[in-house]
Amino acid sequence: MTMKISTTLNGESVDFLCEPNQTLLEALRDRLGLTGTKEGCGSGDCGACSVIMNGRVVASCLVLAAEAEGAAITTVEGLAKDGVLHPLQQRFLEHAALQCGFCTPGILVAAKALLDANPNPTEAEVRLGLAGNLCRCTGYDKIVRAVFAAAADLRGETVA
């Protein structure tokens, strides 16, 4: 039984069709062509598929596509606005906070949700906020520093 789902995706109204047993991750990647959201485990353990759904970070591999009905969803593709990178994206580049880049979309999304909720986090809060997102390349050091720099940008405190 194919279902029709109406959602707000990265600020735009989007309708899509899905099967009742399809995950939001499958719908994003295979129905909507938004392959920036990655599948690393399919069991909610790695965070590569993180998206923001109604203000909360969720593992989209554990959310059914049908649950997106009426929801507001932000994916990595929705972070940059009009061709301008989000401060998190810019600071990740400047701080070399990515190596292979596969976990990066999920970490950016989780970091955005973290800073939306807590604009001035401590190191422990950043580390805890990203504890659901595995990165195997960086050892997290540069990721944590990039999140701090972006947080300062978003608070308007940036020093060059």
Binding site: R29, L34, T35, G36, T37, K38, E39, T75, V76, E77, L79, A80, L85, Q89, F92, L93, E94, A96, L98, G101, F102, T104, P105, L108
Partner: peptide, 21 residues
């Protein structure tokens, strides 16, 4: 020096194409 890598923007915007993409 520490320039921004040429493939960086693709990787922070979700545009980079990995095998499963």
């Amino acid at each position: 020096t520490r320039p921004i890598r040429p493939d960086g923007v693709d990787k922070v915007t979700g545009r980079a194409i990995y095998g499963a993409d």
